[in-house]
């Protein structure tokens, strides 16, 4: 009995393919080494100080998005929330509100947007893809209606510095302590906390999660609210980084965020994903773009590479899995013949 058991299990363990998040980290290391050989500027502080701010918002939103996709849902409205919370922040500041309060209310708007998504998906029972395509238009519409085609730009210098300057003479942008804090926070939340365990459980099987006494609907609402809140934070930071609050801030960012999450090894079918994989994917994106810039490769090649990696992120694990299964079948066949 035991004998058969170990025979069946072992080949699977031996040939377990790399998971995609490991592959992406290997790719990142290769890129960093290769890039530094190719161009001495690549691994310098200056280059990083240029590269990092560009992926700041993506990192911020990709963190909760990872949890959301792991739980089997998706949010396409994040970029619109970024826009709306930025507009709220800008307009309230322009009306003379204390800037701290304005920023806070900008984040609160994000929380509310997330709550709307969450309630529509979990309580009303609509599909998250359709709901968030609708709220993508709705939230952006609110931003447009509130702001019109004007913009707010006269933020105090100390605040806009926060958006794009580095800390002293280091390469780290001032926003990064906050961003790194959030990455660690979400890393802990996802991989070490009860909340994270339950998120994976829901993504793997909603039915089994119900039988395990997990309150699935409330959990999903919380995830949407988290995503909205982080989009709100990103909205304020985005405004500060470009010193402008206007209605079309971060237009189209949702696809970059989702691409980052998927590239980081999060399964679109839910139940699988890691925060470090996603963070690595974001840095990979940023580094690749920076390297292409340095080498004067057209940014279009970068866009093409993004798309190819994205398709690769679903295709390669699939092919590896098929090869793996084929090998197991062959081993079993051999065992059968041996008998």
């Amino acid at each position: 009995m035991k004998n058969i058991f170990t025979k069946i299990i072992q080949p699977q363990r031996r040939f377990r393919p790399f998971t995609w998040d490991v592959i992406i980290m290997i790719l990142l290391v290769i890129l960093l080494v290769f890039g530094s050989i190719l161009n001495p500027v690549f691994l310098t502080a200056f280059n990083f100080s240029l590269m990092l701010p560009n992926i700041g918002e993506i990192l911020l939103i990709a963190m909760p998005m990872t949890l959301l996709i792991i739980a089997g849902e998706i949010d396409l409205s994040v970029a619109s929330i970024v826009g709306l919370s930025g507009v709220t922040f800008g307009l309230l500041y322009e009306r003379g509100l204390n800037i701290w309060l304005a920023a806070f209310l900008g984040v609160i708007v994000g929380v509310l947007c997330g709550a709307v998504n969450g309630i529509l998906v979990a309580r009303v029972g609509l599909g998250s893809l359709a709901v968030t395509i609708a709220t993508l238009a709705l939230f952006r519409g609110f931003a447009t209606a509130a702001m019109g085609n004007k913009s707010v730009t006269d933020f105090p210098e100390s605040w806009t510095n926060f958006g794009y300057s580095t800390i002293g003479k280091t390469f780290l942008p001032q926003t990064y302590p906050l961003i790194i804090f959030f990455i660690i926070l979400f890393g802990i939340l996802t991989h070490l906390s009860i909340f994270g365990r339950r998120t994976f459980a829901i993504g793997q099987s909603v039915e089994a999660a119900r039988f395990a006494a997990i309150s699935v609907l409330n959990h999903k609402i919380i995830l949407f609210i988290l995503t909205g809140a982080m989009s709100g934070v990103a909205g304020v930071i985005y405004v500060l980084r470009i010193s402008t609050a206007q209605y079309d801030n971060a237009m189209g960012l949702e696809l970059s965020v989702i691409a980052t999450a998927l590239l980081g090894g999060v399964s679109i079918f839910g139940g699988v994903g890691t925060i470090w994989g996603v963070a690595a994917a974001a840095v990979l994106f940023g580094s690749l773009e920076a390297l292409f810039n340095l080498q004067a490769v057209s940014p279009n090649i970068f866009t093409i590479t993004t798309g190819t990696l994205l398709i690769g992120s679903v295709m390669i694990p699939l092919l590896l899995g098929r090869i793996n299964r084929f090998r197991i079948d062959r081993i079993r066949e051999n065992e059968k013949n041996a008998k």
Partner: peptide, 26 residues
């Protein structure tokens, strides 16, 4: 009964997370 993709230990610990956790971390 089970989360088929998840590990044996994740499955067995599903109902015990609150007791296993320290400060909400498992």
């Amino acid at each position: 009964g089970l989360f088929m993709q998840a590990s044996v230990s994740r499955n067995i610990a599903t109902e015990m997370l609150d007791k296993l956790a320290k400060f909400g971390l498992v």
